[in-house]
Design a protein around this nucleic acid. Structure first.
Lengths: 151, 151
DNA sequence: GGTGAAATTCGGATTGA
DNA sequence: TCAATCCGAATTTCACC
């Protein structure tokens, strides 16, 4: 039953308790309790507005695979990455490439600067490989919930 | 000035007009007008709750590069991908691999099923290459805004 | 275009059933 | 869990700067 609440929140952000209740045939207070429990359990990390990158002048999305000299410079590298706003995601990968960065920049010139100046000047970075996104078919802020459905 | 509003919305989701106004030294009505303008301009695509994948039992994140027989089966492939909840993102890439999928599944068994059964059974899929995320350092729902700051 | 105040409306907490 | 009430807060409207 709570999966329905998660779907509602994921699709609409913060809603009024009454509206949530109406969707599930619950009263307002009952809905409030459920949502608060979900927040306390840590299932809900927060709320956000979804901004449109294109409209913000961020025409270029790319992935950058970064090989890192291990493991001495790791901490400094990660600290630097967290500060860099253009880096939207950073994953530690199994396999050849240590880290994959998802970045958003205004144009290819900015991407060039990010890779050639910023990233390659970080100590421990042995090399990078950039893959450019031509178009995005799907980009969901919500993790899948269907695996919970059989409950 | 409106960049501050975007940052607020990105960090907190829907807020009360009064709270937004307080942050900028504006009155409630003035803040309301600004936000509505941002929404009408298409800068704000929507609002969402940020759910924690780990807490939802989605322990495995991975990227799957998919080579596709072009271009006959493209439309059907994309339609199928959009329906697949486990696929959180789908990008059309420049270079060797046609599409990169970001997927979230409960465990490696589910990943195996997704790749071997679901994806490879789609007509036109020539091959896949799966890269597993060991840990995620950074994952932001907000695009960078610092490139707008000089305004 | 922005401010301030007033009035109305709406949501949320509490109580009792 | 639901229903009802009360309180508080938020949004809208209006008049003014």
């Amino acid at each position: 039953m709570d999966i329905k609440i998660l779907r509602l929140l994921a699709a609409n952000g913060r809603m009024s308790w009454a509206d949530i209740g109406a969707e599930l045939g619950l009263s307002g207070p009952a809905a409030a309790e459920r949502v608060k429990k979900l927040e306390q359990l840590g299932l809900v990390r927060g709320y956000a507005a979804l901004l449109d990158p294109g409209e913000l002048g961020l025409g270029v999305t790319a992935y950058i695979a970064v090989r890192l000299d291990r493991p001495a410079h790791r901490a400094a590298f990660l600290k630097r990455i967290k500060r860099e706003e253009a880096v939207v995601e950073c994953h530690h990968m199994a396999g050849d490439d240590d880290y994959w960065l998802k970045v958003r920049v205004p144009d290819l010139r900015a991407l060039e600067i990010l890779v050639s100046d910023t990233l390659k000047s970080i100590e421990g970075v042995l090399g990078t490989r950039t893959s450019i996104v031509m178009s995005t078919v799907k980009e969901s802020a919500t993790p899948p919930l269907d695996h919970l459905e059989q409950g």
